[in-house]
Amino acid sequence: MTWDIFVALLAATVLAGTPLLYATMGELITERSGVLNLGVEGMMIMGAFFAFIVQFKTGNPWLATLAAGLGAACIGLLHGVVCLVFQGNQTVSGLALTIFGVGLSDYLGAPFIGEKTVGFQPFDIPLLSDIPVLGEVLFQHDPLVYLSYLLPWAVMWFFRRTSLGLALCASGESPDAVQAAGLDPVKMRWLGIFAGAFFVGVGGAYLSLCATHMWTQNLTAGKGWIAVALVIFAFWRPRRAMFGAYLFGGIMAFQLRLQALGTTIPSSLMMMLPYALTILALLFSSARGKGRSAPAALGDNIAPGA
């Protein structure tokens, strides 16, 4: 493999990793507040759909991105209603949300399948894009890619430096303690679900506005589920999540280039590669990462009237 191909692979890795990065970061926020939301796939595809529709009707990609985030958040709030208000099981509710979201996007989107739209266009960041290698890998993409670079640090800052972020994380660790401190852990969880779903939706928007510039069914093709896996891979840490998203994106990009270079490995086995490596990576990291486990109250509902 020559140097040029390698640099191009890295650039492709960033592109393939970006939707995963948004979705993973979203799910990470939700899980840190103590709510497990397996509906990422459903929210993400609804985000992609809302983004497409708004872009299609208004022609404004920023408005479309906002709509994707808010639209996905509305879908996510269903999860909040079921789990936070009605004490439903979080695992099953998330699953139902995925089935629902995928169905709804198919249904509402049916008249628009194959329609094209402009979305975001790549632009080179002046100066930075001229840096050899780094410029090509990082700074010749779409605006949503550039924003995604800041996301992990913004989330870290939010978790560590703001009282709201601290309270949100505390609701995931010990809702009782939050209650004792005079705050409402349920409100924090609403926030976690809303903010998380917002970013998941933006990840979906990336797919319809930047990656394909069109609408079709099954646009996410399982990326939401990968995001759920990556949160665990990342030990619920934002920067590690970024690493995980690029790792996974990199494997997918690498697989295609390996084929293009003329490998004789059967294509079925190539298709297994990302999933098998995800399990291996999780095994490897969980063997080393004992003690950095999930938020203590993840998946537990907060009983009302307690």
Binding site: I5, A12, A16, A253, L256, R257, Q259, A260
Partner: peptide, 8 residues
């Protein structure tokens, strides 16, 4: 993405 891989 597959086409981009080939072009690379």
């Amino acid at each position: 993405k597959a086409a981009e891989g080939l072009l690379d």
